[in-house]
Computed example of a mutant assay.
Amino acid sequence: MWMWIWIGIISCIIIFGVVIARSYIDIKILCNKVQEDDYISIKAKMLFGLVKFNYQIRQISFKGFEQGFLVKREQKDNFLAGHKTRDKFEFDFHYLQKMYDRVNLLVKYTPDLIRWTKKILRHVHCSILTWETHIGMEDAADTAVASGAMWAIKGTATGWLSHLIRLQHQPEIQVHTHFHGPQFTTEFRCIAKIRFGHAMVAGVILLVRVVKVKGGLKLWQSILFKA
């Protein structure tokens, strides 16, 4: 009797684990710029929507070549009790240099980090990728040049992205030219997903590599906490 109960419990645990492993982490990215208004949103959910994360940049203001950009952001999640934070930071040369130095440290103290990143990205499947831009300058010739440059940028970006993740459909890329005056609006939309099992296994592999390096775990904790 008890043997069958334990077999049933273990079977349920195995089935539940398989279902969880085969579920997806859904990621939605939206970048929108209309003249002076900027908006970036990254939303992720996993475990059938039980865990959600929402990161938003609501304003990007140019403060000058020395100060760079002032960025206002908001972060929300429902982990455990859930929390919500709002802050702002200056995105300038010093900020870029600091981020570059941190990434270099992670690469230096984590074996095969770049290869690990490329491998996990190959498990990401993108179902929707659209990028639409309206652009216009005061002069018709300048508008044509700007439009050609925008096509080139989009072609290079989507080609590079196709080598990193799996695109299930052809990207929808559009550039609309306007000859009646200065105008610039652009919207980038991406919907992607990765199996929870792939992300979990990749996380375990990364953790093992980090722990093997002396001071590796402490370095990751320090950098992630500062970020």
Results as ranks from 00 to 15, higher is better:
Ala81Ser: 14
Leu50Thr: 14
Arg73Gly: 05
Leu80Cys: 10
Asp92Ala: 05
Phe79Cys: 09
Lys72Ala: 07
Ser61Glu: 12
Gly68Trp: 01
Phe69Thr: 02
Ala81Phe: 12
Arg86Pro: 06
Phe91Asn: 01
Ala81Arg: 15
His94Ile: 09
Phe91Trp: 10
Glu66His: 14
Lys52Arg: 12
Phe79Trp: 09
Phe53Gly: 04
Gln67Val: 02
Arg58Gly: 12
Val71Gly: 01
Val51Cys: 02
Tyr55Lys: 02
Lys84Ser: 12
Gln56Gly: 02
Glu66Tyr: 12
Arg86Trp: 07
Thr85Tyr: 11
Lys52Asp: 08
Gly64Lys: 01
Lys76Tyr: 07
Arg86Phe: 11
Phe89Val: 10
Phe65Leu: 11
Lys72Ser: 11
Leu70Asp: 04
Phe53Met: 09
Arg86Met: 10
Val51Asn: 00
Arg73Cys: 07
Lys52Trp: 04
Phe93Thr: 04
Phe69Asn: 00
Lys72Val: 09
Arg86Thr: 15
His83Ala: 12
Gln56Val: 05
Gly64Met: 03
Thr85Gln: 14
Leu80Asn: 15
Leu70Gln: 03
Asn54Arg: 11
Asp87Asn: 14
Asn78Tyr: 03
Gly68Asn: 01
Leu50Trp: 05
Phe91Lys: 00
Lys76Met: 08
Gln75Ala: 14
Ser61Gln: 12
Ile60Tyr: 00
Arg73Phe: 13
Arg86Ser: 14
Lys76Asn: 11
Asp92Trp: 01
Asn54Leu: 06
Ile57Asn: 00
Phe65Met: 12
Ile57Phe: 00
Lys88Met: 09
Gly64Tyr: 02
Phe93Asn: 03
Gly82Met: 07
Lys63Asp: 10
Asp87Trp: 10
Val51Lys: 01
Gly82Asn: 10
Ile57His: 00
Gly68Asp: 02
Gln75Asn: 13
Glu66Gly: 10
Tyr55Glu: 00
Phe62Asn: 10
Gly82His: 07
Phe65Asp: 04
Ala81Thr: 08
Lys63Ala: 13
Asn54Ser: 11
Phe89Gln: 12
Phe89Leu: 11
Phe91Tyr: 12
Arg58Gln: 10
Phe91Leu: 15
Phe79Tyr: 12
Asp77Arg: 04
Gln75Ile: 10
Lys88Gln: 15
His94Gly: 07
Gln59Val: 08
Phe69Pro: 00
Lys76Glu: 05
Phe79Lys: 09
Tyr55Ala: 10
Gly64Asn: 05
Ala81Gln: 13
Glu66Thr: 09
Gly64Leu: 03
Gln67Ile: 02
Ser61Lys: 15
Arg73Asp: 03
Gly64Phe: 02
Arg73Ala: 10
Leu50Cys: 05
Phe62Glu: 08
Asp77Cys: 15
Phe93Gly: 03
Val71Trp: 00
Gly68Cys: 04
Gly82Gln: 07
Lys76Ile: 04
Phe65Tyr: 13
Thr85Val: 09
His94Val: 06
Gln59Gly: 06
Thr85Ser: 14
Leu70Val: 04
Leu50Ala: 11
Phe93Met: 11
Arg58Met: 07
Lys63Ser: 10
Glu74Pro: 01
Glu66Ala: 15
Asn78Glu: 08
Leu80Ile: 11
Gln59Glu: 12
Ala81Trp: 10
Phe62Tyr: 15
Gln59Ala: 13
Val51Arg: 00
Asn54His: 15
Lys84Ile: 05
Lys88Gly: 08
Glu74Trp: 01
Phe53Val: 09
Asp92Val: 04
Phe69Trp: 02
Lys88Ile: 04
Val51Met: 03
Tyr55Val: 07
Arg58Glu: 08
